[in-house]
């Protein structure tokens, strides 16, 4: 009886300790000590109409909080070859969009998830693709290629809203994930 109790206690304790580890998101190594105004799992949603029109016509209007200021500066200085497409803007529009991107960039955002993007990037690195940032890669490292690059309805990790149904609202919560042809994704 005593043995049974002891074994039960061990099982209970081990279970208690290990289960949270197994199920945790394991992205805490980019967590800072700061307090954020927005503790949620989101980034700021894009509401600016000029930005939505100019940047959201061809692709999802990515939240400025997904890349740091240096990356946005580099991106905006090369719009004539924007990932193989021409995205030139007139000087006035380019300036207003650059200002918006810099003011809300990952390293200046007060959204917790935006700061994780920022913190994952080396100081001397200037990634242009959100999908190449260490935080992004870490968050997607368990997803098989057949669900994304091999999935004709998704095609690329650049198409956030193909699976993150509320990406345009700035939410990347796991409960909102629906992978076309596969359904929900539980980490």
């Amino acid at each position: 009886m005593k043995n049974t109790l002891a074994i039960s206690a061990v099982i209970f304790t081990v279970g208690f300790v290990t289960i949270p580890v197994v199920w945790s998101d394991d992205d805490d190594h980019w967590e800072g000590m700061e307090e954020y105004k927005h503790q949620s799992t989101g980034v700021a949603a894009v509401t600016n109409t000029v930005y939505r029109e100019e940047c959201g016509s061809c692709h999802m209007a990515y939240s400025p909080g997904l890349l740091p200021a240096n990356s946005w500066m580099k991106m905006m200085s090369g719009l004539e070859n924007h990932f193989g497409d021409n995205a030139e803007l007139d000087a006035g529009t380019e300036k207003s969009i650059t200002d918006l991107l810099l003011a809300n960039s990952a390293d200046r955002s007060d959204y917790r998830r935006a700061r994780k993007f920022s913190r994952s990037i080396q100081l001397n690195d200037t990634p242009l693709r959100i999908s190449e940032t260490p935080y992004f890669r870490h968050e997607h490292d368990e997803i098989p290629n057949r669900m994304v690059t091999g999935n004709p309805e998704v095609k690329s990790f650049s198409h956030c809203n193909a699976c993150h149904t509320r990406a345009e609202q700035g939410s990347f919560n796991e409960h909102d994930i629906r992978i076309p042809g596969y359904g929900r994704w539980d980490d």
Binding site: C58, H59, M60, F83, S158, H159
Partner: peptide
């Protein structure tokens, strides 16, 4: 077909 919707060849938008 001009009366039909299109789709961005790269982004699917």
């Amino acid at each position: 077909k001009l009366t039909a919707p299109g789709k961005h060849v790269k982004t699917n938008k």
